[in-house]
Structures are given as structure tokens and as C-alpha cells.
Design a protein around this nucleic acid. Sequence first.
DNA 1: TCTGATCTATATCAGACCAATATAGGGCTA
DNA 2: TAGCCCTATATTGGTCTGATATAGATCAGA
Lengths: 175, 175
Amino acid sequence: MDVRTICLGILTRGPATGYEIKKLFEEDGYQHVVEASFGSIYPALNRLTEEGLVSVREEAQEKRPDRKVYSITASGRTVFLASLLKPLPEDRHRSPFAFAMLFSHLLPPERVAQMIDAYIAQCEGQLAQIAGHSESQTDGERFVLGMGQTIYGAMIAYLRAHRAEIEHQQPAAAE
Amino acid sequence: MDVRTICLGILTRGPATGYEIKKLFEEDGYQHVVEASFGSIYPALNRLTEEGLVSVREEAQEKRPDRKVYSITASGRTVFLASLLKPLPEDRHRSPFAFAMLFSHLLPPERVAQMIDAYIAQCEGQLAQIAGHSESQTDGERFVLGMGQTIYGAMIAYLRAHRAEIEHQQPAAAE
DNA sequence: TCTGATCTATATCAGACCAATATAGGGCTA
DNA sequence: TAGCCCTATATTGGTCTGATATAGATCAGA
């Protein structure tokens, strides 16, 4: 699932600038789904344009930087649909937090507690963002938002229920 | 949480070759925590060696390719510990599956059903792998394994409970 | 017995991607 | 009026992945 495909997908929902494509996923409760940086979005849009999968309309605004509004073309739609019919790449989760917990016995208990607090706060933030826009969606959107709610909810419950088990280790005892 | 730090962390548990470092995380139920390719592990180990954070012992085996067994040094331990005291990078989840579900209204219902089946199977596989090595662990290991169990369990339950909501969309109706 | 697959083990490279930075004007707030 | 954040595009250095190459071992099955 490369950035080109992601851009195509977002553009099926309507025209957007590169900037808006990034913002859409940062703000709309989809951070846990996909994400991409400007450094990959802008080159991707250029290449998609060259290949005729998207079209650009340049809006030279007064007193504002130019906007390049991208729209998906018919062949872009075809290519995107085809990519959804091919086998999907597997999910990828990278969790520096979980990795750090593997070494909790090497850390002062206060640091472990603080890491868990921060992680719970992070999950609660995600939950809040998901809850914050529960109107006007397709079935697919509601479904994916529900997935996020489920994961973060379950994670918070697990951390609250089990944190004592690693906070109360005596530092040097293990290993 | 770059590959260098990940390698250091794994080496705190004992000496290992580059190959073993990769295997450890693929087979031991930690795929959802961190992962790295050979293309990043080997260069990382070389650089760590140059910097004196790990040491190498070359085992020239007969009838076998050489093994380079890496061990963490005292300064390696210090650097690793320090990295756990700095603020951790945020988790990163990329889910091509969830992304695809956002466009379920563009797909034939059978394809959606098939994607969900495959995803559930994937989650069950993870669960099986976690269950498959529940002996001889530190508190941290048990805790992280429990995190995985929680997430995959909750995800499977959610998918089973809510799949009907996107499988029964009539393709062109939405949007 | 021989063929092919799979495993151990290291290494490299093209291409993808991220984080940071540059540029540039606008609005908002203290 | 200084400082900060927002819109908006773009580039660069460096990291990381996925694929491929090499090479002998082991093992299953035809």
C-alpha cells in the first residue's frame, strides 16, 4: 500500500490539494490507518499526473501561495479499484512503547509508570478524536472508526488492569 | 526507535547473529512490536561495531558460512538505557485492510467478505503464535504478549460482530 | 538417487519513505 | 510588533524495505 495508492484512494472522495490529503488523515481519526509525509505525497502526485491517473487544476490565488487541486481521472479510478482487488499487504504495527516494556526490568519503576501514563493519554487522545466526528459517514467510515475505538478501548483497559505487574518489579532482580 | 536501538535492545538479552536478531522477532510473537529487514540490520550492526557499542566474534565454521556473533558492550548498554529514558517515538500503525474498508462500497460484497475472512485469519495466526510460547518469560515479556492478545482478540470480536454492516452494502448506492 | 524446497547466514542495491528544513504570505494574540 | 500558528509547495539527507545474490546443509519425495 504505497503513497500513490493512498493518494488515489483519498481523491476518489473528491478533489484535494497535497496539503489537504495529509491533513485529512491526520485530523479525521485515521492516523492508525495510514499516514504519509509531504516528502512522499508531492512526488507521488507529480508521478500520478504524468501517468494520467490524476489531473491538476492550478488555482493562482491572490495574496496566497498557489493551490494545486488534484482530481482523480477515469483511469485513476480503474487503477485504484484494481489495487483493491489484489491481495493486500499485511498490517504493520511498530510500537516503541511495547518494545520499551520488554526492558521494564532495566528501568526505574517511576519511569515505567510515566511511560504507561503517557501511552494511556495517547490512546485516550485517539479515542477523543474518533468520537469528535461521528456525523455524516459512509458505512465503511463508521466501520473503520469502530475498529479504532475497539483497539484503543481494549488497550486502555488492559494497561489499567495489568500495569501493576511491571511497575512493581524490583529493578535489578530480573535477568 | 531506529534499527540500531532495536538491535541494542535485543542484544541485552544475550549475544546473537544478525540472522538471529531478525528471527527472534518474527517467530516469538513480537511482529506487532518491531520488525526490521536484513537490509537495515546488517549495516546497523556494522555501525554499532565501529562505534564500540557492540563487539563481534567471528566463528569461521567448517562447511557453513561464517557466523558473526554480536555482543553488546558496556557503553552499548549505557546508550540503550539512555534511549529508553528519552521520550519515545509514537506508535505507528499502517493498515492496508482498514484503508480498503473505507472503500468497501466500491467493491463487490464477496470481495469484502473475503478480505475480512483473510484479516481474521491473520489475527488468529498472531494469537496462535503468542499462545505458542507462554513459558519462561520476564514480567515485561508476559505484559507485551498480553497486549498483543488483547488487541487481536478485541479486533476479531469486533470484525465478527460488525462485518454484516459493510458486507451488505449495495455497491453503487453509497457516495 | 537426484531434484527441489527450505534453512542458515551474510551482503548489496534500487527505490520508497520520513523528518527536517526552506520559502512565503496570512491571520491571531499578547 | 513580535512571535506563533496556519495554508501551501518543494527539496534534501538519510533511513528502511523488498528483492536479489551467494553458498553450503538438510530433508522430503519422486
